[in-house]
């Protein structure tokens, strides 16, 4: 599964999608879900919380491990994908179609400055060596 070109990416393996209203949705990449394995629980970030870039927000737990999901940019948490309460496995099945939380970024420019798909793939490849 290749990394969709309409998304932005972080070094900590989140993908970021800019929605029509300027908010962003955040999920974890195919590479991340593959590392973690079968998801069994997703912990919501606090809605309304102001966060800095690279701050811990949500937590995803697979059978084997827990991993933090970080805010890709500074902003305010505005939503959580409630469907994950009953079906965390959606992250494994369709990682790029399954957002975890939603934010209103402080600066749209911060989002634009994140890695594109090609740069992210290079990052993944470099971590493998």
């Amino acid at each position: 599964m290749s990394n969709p070109s309409n998304l932005k990416y972080t070094e900590s393996h989140e993908w970021v999608k800019t929605e029509a209203d300027g908010s962003i949705t955040i999920g974890i990449t195919q590479h991340a879900q593959e590392l973690l394995g079968d998801m069994v629980f997703v912990e919501s970030p606090e809605i309304g919380l102001k966060v800095n870039a690279k701050e811990e927000c949500a937590v995803v737990e697979s059978v084997k491990a827990a991993a933090d999901v970080y805010a890709p940019v500074a902003g305010t948490i505005t939503g959580f994908n409630e469907a994950l309460n009953d079906a965390p496995e959606k992250i494994n099945e369709a990682p790029f179609d399954t957002w975890i939380f939603k934010m209103k970024p402080d600066n749209a420019a911060d989002v634009a400055a994140l890695m594109d798909a090609a740069a992210y793939q290079k990052h993944v490849d470099s971590e493998a060596h």
Binding site: H13, A32, L36, K64, A65, A67, D68, V69, Y70
Partner: peptide, 13 residues
């Protein structure tokens, strides 16, 4: 997603 906790399970790593 944090690498630190991924490797928490000392059983595997």
């Amino acid at each position: 997603m944090g690498r630190s906790r991924i490797f928490l399970l000392r059983l595997f790593y």
